[in-house]
Design a protein around this nucleic acid. Structure first.
Length: 556
RNA sequence: GCGCUUGUAGCUCAAUAGGACAGAGCGCAGCCCUGCGAAGGCUGAGGUUGUGGGUUCGAUUCCCGCCAAGCGCACCA
């Protein structure tokens, strides 16, 4: 459904024009008309400060402007007559009649309630997590996973054609190190005296991985006789297992991808060469000190960046450029959103500059950075390092606190700010946990609907015009915020509003529940009307939870 | 040194592109189940939005300085 806000903006614009035509307002240019939601309920459901913005250019008192605006506002079914409020606001209140009708709209839209048509089918790729497959994912990756998958859900709800993608860094230095580490662990497991490379992955999970690889098929003869071949062969198996483990871990967090894109294929299919060719043709490649550099300085950067090392091995940056060319040129995504950890922030301007150098508008690329997550257990900080092997995996966190709790917590803070994730808190608070509060509301709703079914109550003909109680209308108001929220989140890519909205929606339901008896033998008509409202609440709350990638439990 | 992000109630965080009296949860002090789920509802206390300037009808929000925290400034990814 279209957010009411748009309708109001058109209404205001019309009233200005009407007032101008009637000579009540001077013919001044209009700023963008913004419709905002007042904090104070006394100020109505929506408001515009347009008169305040017009005051100077119109040379009039803002209250007078507001007055004339109101006088020239056409009647609309959505709202009561607008009101003027000093120092120059126009306040709008949704009409009770229209509000009640929206229960029917919500029910009709069902699982699609919350959808808005702003994307127009534009193709957007959301690439997220993309952890090097050299070790298990941890809570920091979990944050990116939750952020990326929720943004993808939101964009889909907003009418975009969304692709979820994981970029598999299966080429390059870290992969080599991973292969050699695995080889070492396998050799050690077979009783050979082999030293772990200095840059190797020391984590205990590599020992387990080695065991799994060995268990799969005998490798003994390979290991000592043909070391290089063994490293490659074992590495390929290890990579598959590691990727499968990552896929499982993310899957248990409700995160799924449409495509796992292999970095190596960029080299195998010549796309890497093509990208470098384009840069060369455009004059952005410079040879210096035996290496090939991207002339980033000519693109406004403060230093150039190496693309091909003097050893002839391309850097990560080089393949990333080829990857992004693939996204935009080969696959034709109109927009691309990358979700990265904040430790990659330095890479952002470089990549955007490089994308520009490829002749692609850099504004089509959005890079979101999620700040660090510090894992705590009680007061103790739990360090995360793949190298030293001290790691608490995402899977362990999920096992401990549950996927829904994990998602809700990771989502509730703005990606821009650092956060602590306290395992003890997530568990010990579980009684008064906001996650349970929200899900409890859904379970309660489900329980009411179950009871209605048990008693054989048919509320399909319920008369929603009977919903006159303050708490009923407050609940409807809250539900109607969802499409509006989807729209703004699709634009600002800030999904942390979702958990907050979910709590507000749950509160509105609990308040309604407290004040309004739903199923009552003595008032069958009101019962039917209220059951419709309850059903609509279930729809809105379930959709909110699903957008967050959470479950909407029927029972708890 | 330069750059990015952050600084809001005792704690954890909001504030929907500059709006009206800065809001939630937890914690704290109380109140409410002889009917649909008390994992619930209600009331109260709690703030000089790090700090000093500026922009304007209006600033938590925009600009500048300072202070503090995290991250980044590789022929690592």
């Amino acid at each position: 459904m279209e957010p009411v806000r748009h309708r109001l903006a058109r209404l205001v614009e019309e009233s200005v024009k009407r007032a101008q035509a009637a000579g009540a307002l001077p013919q001044v240019a209009l700023p963008e008309i913004t419709i905002e939601r007042p904090h104070n309920p006394d100020h109505g459901d929506y408001a515009t400060g347009l008169p305040l913005k017009l005051a100077r250019s119109a040379g009039m008192n803002p209250v007078d402007i507001a007055q004339r605006l109101v006088e020239h506002t056409a009647a609309a079914e959505e709202i009561d007559p607008p009101e003027v409020a000093p120092p120059g606001f126009v306040n709008f209140r949704l009409s009770a009649g229209w509000l009640k009708e929206q229960v029917g709209t919500v029910l009709a839209e069902g699982e699609h309630f919350g959808d808005v048509a702003v994307g127009n089918g534009e193709s957007v790729q959301v690439e997220f997590v993309s952890v090097n497959p050299t070790g298990p994912v941890h809570i920091g990756h979990g944050r990116g996973a939750v952020l990326g998958s929720t943004i993808a859900n939101i964009l889909q709800a907003a009418g975009y054609d969304v692709q979820r993608e994981y970029y598999v860094n299966d080429a390059g230095n870290q992969m080599d190190s991973f292969y050699r580490s695995l080889y070492t662990r396998v050799a050690q497991a077979l009783g050979h005296d082999v030293e772990m490379p200095e840059d190797g992955y020391q984590g205990a999970y590599m020992i387990e991985l080695a065991q799994e690889v060995i268990a799969e098929s005998p490798v003994e003869s390979l290991v000592m006789e043909r070391k290089e071949e063994a490293t490659r062969e074992l590495g390929a198996r290890g990579l598959d297992k590691m990727l499968a483990a990552i896929r499982d871990d993310l899957g248990s967090l409700g995160v799924h991808f449409d495509l796992w894109f292999s970095e190596q294929t960029l080299f195998d299919t010549g796309q890497y060469e093509e990208a470098m060719e384009v840069l060369k043709k455009e004059g952005y490649l410079v040879q210096r000190e035996g290496a090939t550099w991207l002339a980033s300085t000519s693109l406004g950067e403060d230093k150039d960046n190496v693309l091909v090392r003097s050893t002839g091995v391309p850097t990560y940056f080089a393949s990333d450029i080829a990857y992004h060319r693939n996204k935009f040129v080969e696959r034709g995504f109109q927009r691309v959103i990358d979700v990265w950890g904040s430790d990659h922030q330095g890479h952002v301007p470089r990549l955007k500059a490089a994308v520009g150098a490829l002749g692609i508008d850099p504004d089509r690329l959005t890079i979101l950075l999620s700040q660090l997550v510090t894992l705590r257990r009680g007061g103790e900080i739990v360090r995360l390092s793949k190298r030293t092997g001290e790691i608490i995996t995402l899977q362990e966190v999920i096992d401990e606190v549950g996927a829904d709790v994990c998602r809700f917590y990771l989502l509730s803070r703005s990606a821009d700010s650092q956060m602590d994730f306290d395992l003890e808190l997530a568990k010990t608070e579980s009684q008064d946990n906001p996650v349970y509060y929200v899900q409890y509301a859904h379970a309660r709703i489900a329980s009411i609907l179950r009871l209605a079914t048990e008693r054989g109550i048919d509320f399909s003909n319920g008369d929603i015009s009977l919903l006159d109680h303050e708490a009923e209308q407050a609940l409807i108001r809250r539900m109607l915020q969802l499409p509006e929220l989807v729209e703004t989140m699709a634009e600002n890519l800030e999904p942390h509003h979702l958990p907050h909205y979910a709590q507000e929606l749950a509160t509105a339901f609990h308040w309604f529940y407290k004040q309004c008896r739903v199923i009552s033998d003595s008032h069958p008509e009101l019962t039917a009307a209220r059951l419709k409202l309850v059903d609509a609440s279930r729809t809105a709350l379930a959709r909110t939870l699903h957008l967050m990638g959470m479950t909407a439990p029927e029972r708890m």
